[in-house]
């Protein structure tokens, strides 16, 4: 006897369930959290290095670093003044909610005001895996080219904040900002965007203000 069973179940449901447990944990400890995603070399670690020194007088910051095999990024985050936890994904191209859950167990969350999760450098896989953080932040960079929203729509669809890094390289690279922003606007209307250079510090204050505002809001809850 042959039967068809109708299911209609989200394939990522198991991951999303753990992600919502992570979220509850972060909410309970009043820790504002972000999932930082980008292609390799866009400037995730550089932005973290720019960010932490400007926050550490006022806030305790933890960084969870996803890397395929090394601890270079976590070491850089620790050197900048954060509590750093390394996750070696063992070849996996993304972090998932279970990996973050394990990392959260190693952090004194109630003592932390901000948690930055630095995902594995990749514009495809991380977009499928919710982690449970409050906001997803995508870092794009000028040398990557202006066609990325069109090539990686899944990533651009799912983020809450966009940072356009390496703006100091605009004079040297044929990057059509209008074309780039048009794709972003259609995929993710009204997306909060900061244009920065981690090299010159341009635009960083706006990003820091945004973070401070959200950290303070999480504290008040």
């Amino acid at each position: 006897m042959n039967d068809r069973i109708k299911i209609v179940q989200n394939i990522m449901g198991a991951n999303d369930q753990i992600a919502s447990e992570n979220r509850s944990k972060l909410l309970a400890s009043n820790t504002f959290s972000i999932n930082m995603m980008a292609s390799p070399g866009a400037g995730k670690t550089s932005l973290i290095e720019q960010t932490i020194p400007q926050l550490k007088e006022k806030y305790n910051v933890a960084v969870v670093d996803g890397d395929i095999a090394t601890s270079i990024d976590a070491d850089r985050a620790a050197a900048a003044g954060a509590t750093a936890v390394q996750i070696n994904t063992g070849g996996e191209c993304h972090l998932d909610a279970v990996m973050l859950k394990q990392a959260l167990g190693k952090i004194d969350l109630p003592a932390m005001d901000l948690l930055i999760v630095e995902n594995v450098g990749n514009l495809i896989c991380p977009s499928s895996f919710q982690l449970g953080t409050h906001k997803s932040v995508l870092i794009a960079s000028i040398p990557e080219g202006d066609d990325k929203p069109y090539k990686y729509p899944g990533m651009y669809r799912g983020v809450d904040v966009l940072i356009i890094n390496k703006i100091d390289l605009m004079p040297y690279i044929p990057f059509k900002m209008d074309y780039f922003k048009k794709g972003v606007e259609i995929l993710n209307p009204g997306l909060e965007t900061f244009t920065v250079s981690c090299q010159t510090g341009e635009g960083i204050p706006g990003w820091i203000s945004w973070l401070e505002e959200h950290i303070d809001q999480s504290k008040e809850k």
Binding site: R4, I5, N10, I11, S128
Partner: peptide, 27 residues
């Protein structure tokens, strides 16, 4: 991604985010 008819960038996305298991056949 702009509208091919009028060129507008004011677009809503109707479908394309689907990602689910719809059914199985069993014996």
């Amino acid at each position: 991604y702009e509208c091919p008819k009028c060129g507008s960038n004011s677009i809503s996305i109707l479908q394309g985010d689907e990602f689910f298991l719809e059914a199985i056949d069993i014996d």
